[in-house]
Simulated assay, not measured.
Amino acid sequence: MSILFLLSIIIFRFWKTKQKRATAVQTPIVDQVRSKDSLTDEVIVTRKSYISRESKTEDLELPLMEFEAVAIATNNFSDGNKLGKGGFGIVYKGMLPDGKEIAVKRLSKKSLQGTGEFQNEVRLIARLQHLNLVRLLGCCVEKGEKMLIYEYLENLSLDSHLFDKIRRSNLSWQKRFDIANGIARGLLYLHQDSRFRVIHRDLKASNVLLDKNMTPKISDFGMARIFGREETEANTRKVVGT
Rank of each mutant, 00 (worst) to 15 (best):
L96W: 02
P97Q: 01
P97T: 01
P97G: 00
D98C: 06
G99P: 04
G99Y: 06
G99F: 06
K100C: 06
K100L: 05
E101D: 06
I102E: 00
I102A: 01
A103L: 02
K105H: 02
K105E: 06
L107K: 07
K109C: 05
K110N: 09
K110E: 10
S111H: 10
S111D: 07
S111V: 04
S111K: 05
G116P: 07
E117F: 08
E117G: 12
E117H: 07
F118L: 03
Q119P: 00
N120K: 04
E121D: 02
V122K: 02
V122G: 05
V122I: 15
V122S: 01
V122R: 03
V122T: 07
R123W: 05
R123V: 03
L124P: 11
L124Y: 10
L124K: 09
A126S: 15
A126P: 03
R127L: 08
R127C: 09
L128T: 12
L128H: 03
Q129D: 04
Q129G: 01
Q129Y: 05
H130F: 11
L131I: 12
N132K: 09
N132P: 12
N132V: 14
L133P: 08
L133H: 04
R135L: 12
L137G: 06
G138W: 08
C139P: 05
V141F: 13
V141D: 01
E142A: 13
E142I: 10
K143M: 07
G144I: 11
G144P: 09
E145N: 11
E145F: 06
K146H: 13
K146I: 02
K146S: 15
M147G: 09
L148R: 07
L148N: 11
L148P: 14
I149M: 13
E151T: 13
E151Q: 15
Y152D: 06
L153A: 11
L153S: 14
E154L: 08
E154S: 14
E154T: 14
L156A: 07
S157K: 09
L158N: 10
L158P: 10
S160R: 14
S160Q: 14
H161L: 07
H161K: 04
I166D: 07
R167I: 00
R168C: 14
S169K: 13
S169H: 03
S169L: 04
S169F: 00
S169D: 06
S169T: 10
N170P: 00
L171E: 07
Q174T: 01
Q174N: 02
Q174L: 02
